[in-house]
């Protein structure tokens, strides 16, 4: 007997129209149809969603934690990308 485990899938749920899909967890399923249905049965029992994405975990690629500093720290001092960097007169109100 073969003893192959069902592949692992990552599940993303859109909580309501207008919101992004958000990662909620993972599950096992033999194929994509089953993965979507399992996601429905496992992760939306309490009205948590209106739309489901699944992706097989092995197809998900991630940045390296060891590269965190060179990846993300350089953004820290680019304050000119933020609106508060610019000094404008009070009477201008909302800009």
């Amino acid at each position: 007997m073969s003893n192959k485990e069902w592949p692992l899938w990552e599940v993303f749920i859109r909580a309501k129209q207008g919101l992004n899909h958000k990662h909620v967890g993972s599950l096992h399923a033999a194929d994509v149809k089953m993965a979507i249905e399992n996601a429905r049965d496992v992760y939306t029992r309490r009205m948590e969603g209106v739309s489901i994405w699944v992706v097989e975990s092995k197809n998900l690629h991630a940045s390296e934690p060891s590269e965190q500093e060179e990846f993300f720290d350089p953004a820290n001092d680019k304050i000119y990308r933020h609106p508060t960097f610019y000094i404008l007169p009070e009477e201008l109100n909302h800009m």
Binding site: M1, S2, N3, K4, W6, A30, D31, M34
Partner: peptide, 9 residues
């Protein structure tokens, strides 16, 4: 059951 599901997939 689990094996058959994999075989079918």
């Amino acid at each position: 059951v689990r094996e058959a599901a994999v075989a079918y997939a």
